Computed example of a mutant assay.
Amino acid sequence: MIATHATHTTRIVLPGLVEPDGLEVTSVPVPSPGPKQLLVQVEATGISFAEQSMRRGRYYGQPAFPFTPGYDLVGRVLSAGDSADEGMIGRRVATMTKTGAWAGHAVVEVRDSILVPDQVPSDEAETVVVNGVTAWQMLHRAAKIEPGQTILLFGANGGVGGILIQLALHHGLRVIGAASPRHHEALREAGVTPVDYADPDLAATVRALAPGGVDAVFDNIGGSITRLSFDLLAPGGTVVTYAIVGEVSGTGNLVWPFVKAIGQAALWSVLQNGRRATFYDLWAGHRFRPARFRRHLEADLGRVFDLLAQGVITANIAARFPLTEAAAALRLAESHTLNGKVILLP
């Protein structure tokens, strides 16, 4: 174990149910890694829908206030705890943290950390950590989509959507992207056929584009959109629900919508011959099948990093802010006017 020269670090704290300006910029002692942990000097972190939901107390399983947000990070390893590979010291890692990444230094778990290729800049790598794993696994593990097939993607202008589009086109898929009309021109330029997710005639529009049905739908809205998505499937198709924005954005109980969505997916898969539905959970197996979780994380994020390093996919950075300006960055991210991810740079 080696020590960092810094004794204190910046940490952003979400103190409670506050507006973005209520975020607190604090200075705290640099933490020390425990067993199977690493101390990382953070080089890039970012803002996703998860942090926006946590600010409103609407993210299932979030910790009690106050806490430091930050779902993922990229940084350089400064020291290693007991039973951690000291060969990682000095190298850059990408880590899924769920919380705690909005800081100058962070203690992370070895098993949730993947080495970042030297040729990939930290801010670009940050855009594809959670988003890239999610997109890759939904395409290739959940939907098992094949070249030449057609998919319908809700949230096409979002962080996950932007990476999924690139991976899908690289895989030889036709992409129909559902988003607000203000994002349609950018989607066309990316090679996507855009549709308005709020169009009352959305079903007819999609059926005109794919008369035989779509082979997979990636749904981040839930509720009635999931039902519509299932009806738009071709024989053998799959609906992958990866968020329930419609429910999370409300005010009711958070547990029941998730239970309902998971149960509904299981029931439809049993009752509908050849078509199926699934609820994608990035953290599935993290606690009870850790070795398998790690293998998939390493393989899938590694593949995404390779594609990024080769220039096959590109990082979509909407804006960069210093970590100390997290409030302004969060306000911009919540404006829903962006196409890409907002990056925080400690």
Rank of each mutant, 00 (worst) to 15 (best):
M1P: 15
T4V: 03
H5R: 14
A6D: 10
A6P: 11
T10N: 13
V18P: 10
E19F: 07
E19V: 14
E24D: 14
T26C: 10
P29F: 02
S32T: 10
G34F: 09
G34R: 00
K36F: 06
V40I: 08
V42S: 06
E43W: 09
T45A: 01
T45M: 01
G46I: 05
G46N: 01
G46Y: 03
S48V: 07
F49M: 02
Q52M: 09
Q52H: 07
S53Q: 14
S53L: 10
M54Q: 12
R55T: 13
R56Y: 01
A64H: 15
G75K: 01
L78N: 06
G81V: 11
D82H: 04
S83W: 10
I89W: 09
R91N: 07
R92M: 02
A94N: 10
T95G: 03
T99S: 02
A101L: 01
A101M: 08
V110T: 11
S113K: 04
D118T: 15
D118Y: 14
V120I: 02
V120D: 05
P121T: 02
S122I: 04
S122K: 02
D123W: 07
A125N: 00
V130A: 09
N131C: 00
G132P: 08
G132C: 01
T134P: 02
W136I: 06
W136N: 02
Q137A: 03
H140S: 11
I145E: 10
I145S: 07
T150S: 04
I151D: 13
F154M: 11
F154H: 00
G161A: 03
H171T: 14
V175D: 08
S180G: 13
E185L: 00
L187S: 05
A190F: 13
A190E: 06
V192M: 07
T193D: 06
T193I: 08
V195P: 11
D196Y: 08
A198P: 01
D201C: 12
A203I: 15
T205S: 01
A208K: 03
A210Q: 11
A210L: 09
F218H: 04
D219E: 10
D219W: 05
N220K: 09
G222Y: 04
S229T: 12
S229D: 10
F230I: 12
F230H: 09
D231R: 15
L233M: 13
G236K: 07
T238G: 09
Y242A: 10
G246D: 00
G252K: 07
W256E: 11
V259A: 09
I262M: 00
A265M: 05
A266C: 04
N273A: 12
R275V: 11
R275G: 03
A277G: 02
A277D: 03
T278P: 03
F279Q: 06
A284R: 06
H286V: 15
R287A: 15
P290L: 01
A291M: 05
F293P: 15
L297N: 15
R303V: 04
F305Y: 05
G311L: 08
L323W: 00
T324S: 06
A326R: 00
R331F: 13
E334K: 05
L338F: 14
K341M: 04
K341V: 01
I343T: 07
